[in-house]
Design a protein around this nucleic acid. Structure first.
Lengths: 330, 330
DNA sequence: TTATATAATATAACCGGTTACATTTCAATG
DNA sequence: CATTGAAATGTAACCGGTTATATTATATAA
């Protein structure tokens, strides 16, 4: 592998000149530039990113920290992040925290000694002091999907409460009169917002009381179990708004086994709009998040911060959309 | 951030000694070691990985190159790779090629100027000269899932042909007498092997001719379309072996719309064992790959190569297993 | 006690870039 | 023609580690 000094020697100039040509910094004579470019081509030279990183205190890599890449919501986001990163000469480090705080902390620590240029974090385990630490280290950060309530970093999330309302209202509109909600766990802020959206619609109904709200993890298995519990507790249930699509898929499976006909005896609405929600039979009506767009936006905002064009934090709260499928078509 | 020189000064020793303590290389007096460790603790010093990388010509990062992380087969593999990598102090760079050769080449080039310590590649676009290039650059490589036929690198794949046989034989066993196959595209070696497994079972049947084999991309949409074509071409079809689970899900949806009852009028078997295959209604019988294990194994083998313990390439061809679900239970 | 081998530590070069500062070149001005 | 200042380029320090080699301290043998 040729180094910058090889190029300098071949072109008969100093390394500084070569560096200037490569980075288009400072003044260089046209002829000199051409000679250097030719030498670069002749030696098929590529700047060594590690050396450059050491000098610049940069690594040209950003970390994408997610709970787990196996939740289908994240790959699509990751895909978008990587697309934008690649287009801008950055690499993406994939980090799974498994929703464990110790892992998150390990990552934050180890990544900062590697000059990661920025982080996109989706974790509800993050606390204020973590943010302060990153701030102190000068590491740009964008919070994605799962964001802290009170902070001043750029964050990207969706209108969870409004989405919860849309979903629940839709169930009302198709004629449901006993609507349950399967929420995510308490400490998950998105889940809480979605639940409040649900409550906005049902809290003044005569039949409503908190026993209509079940709590599940964001997984198919958990959704399946909690749905069955609801069937026992409320045999007259005729609609469920699930806090995410995985839960909805679990509920669908539970309904099928319980012999409840979908959508006529039980209508189901999910949240997220992962591909899978459209692939079940019947397809599941859901609140679609602009997943890919969120990833794009996150990476773009991060780049702005890294490149220092813009430092005021922005808080995006993107629109969500009701996507109609068979699970509520009656 | 404290540097090694800060530590050396604080401990009253030279940087070489500090380095030796950190890396447990060479002889050091017990007392000296303790003094140094104390200084490290006092300054909460972490070695800078970029500087270390420059010196060692290493980056402590491995690249995971996949067609697209949005195919649910890959996140699980990625998950395993990342787990093992993390445990060993490595980071994982996520690279999506989108099945495009130009992207693959871009990655190979750019990653090599970054001292990536190794690559796990899953791509059927890779050709011999790429392997030679990596060999020349001294970059360890493990080929995953989609491997070149003739090479001498470590590779990890499954018994595709045997899996194809198992799947098809199972359809025969449950009483199917007109069994179609939806294969992946020709240039995908796994798909080809699976198809040959299918042919092993059906080629001597009187009804069989190549029109029973459809070609699809590894996607739900494509599976859906090709399944419908098969329904038209062969109305008496009563079983389909699909080259992967996404195709099977598409076929399931097609059958549902076509009014074919599953499993009695049409039995379906997929391949891969992605989570989703068990979550559809009905669940899809499939040939389960040891996905997580494959990722683990790939990373472990890569580590062996990186750490130089072992250089003879190994070719793993792992067992697959038939997982019974409702789509063939009759 | 001195010579010699060995253990422990220090010095300084090196990895391959960037860049502050120094130097040279050259056109414009007095 | 000498002076001046901007433009172009070069020199060398620096980023923060590793490590070959040199040096010093200590143990062993003669």
């Amino acid at each position: 592998m040729a180094t910058i000094r090889d190029v300098a020697k071949k072109a008969g100039v100093s390394v500084a000149t070569v560096s200037r040509v490569i980075n288009k910094k400072g003044k260089i004579r046209k002829e000199t530039e051409e000679i250097v470019l030719q030498a670069i081509k002749d030696l098929s030279y590529t700047p060594n990113m590690v050396a450059r990183g050491l000098s610049n205190r940069r690594s040209y890599a950003v970390a994408l920290i997610v709970p787990t890449i196996t939740n289908p919501f994240f790959p699509e986001m990751a895909r978008a992040v990587e697309d934008i990163a690649r287009d801008n000469g950055y690499n993406v480090l994939l980090c799974n925290t498994d929703d464990r705080r110790d892992r998150l902390i390990d990552y934050i620590n180890s990544l900062s000694s590697q000059y990661v240029d920025g982080m996109i974090i989706s974790s509800h385990n993050i606390v204020k002091e973590d943010l302060q630490k990153l701030d102190r280290l000068g590491i740009p950060l964008v919070m994605m999907d799962r964001v802290l309530d009170d902070h001043d970093f750029t964050s990207i999330t969706v209108q969870n409460r409004e989405g919860g309302r849309k979903a629940t209202q839709h169930l009302v509109d198709v004629g449901c009169t006993r609507i349950a909600h399967i929420s995510g766990l308490e400490d998950e802020l998105n889940a809480t917002h979605r639940m409040w959206g649900y409550r906005d619609i049902v809290s003044d109904k005569s039949w409503f009381d908190p026993s209509w709200i079940g709590k599940a993890e964001f997984s198919v298995k958990s959704g399946y179990q909690v749905a069955k519990e609801l069937f026992v507790r409320h045999p007259d249930i005729d609609g469920i708004f699930c806090s995410n699509d995985l839960i909805a898929i679990g509920a669908l499976k539970a309904a099928y086994e319980w012999g409840k006909k979908i959508p006529n005896e039980l209508a189901i609405v999910g949240f997220d709009g992962i591909d899978m929600s459209g692939l079940t039979v019947p397809g599941i009506t859901t609140i679609q998040q602009p997943t890919y767009h969120m990833g794009e936006l996150a990476m773009e905002e991060l780049l702005k911060q890294i490149e220092g064009q813009n430092n005021e934090p922005k808080k995006y709260e993107l629109d969500v959309e009701l996507v109609l499928r068979e699970s509520t078509m009656r």
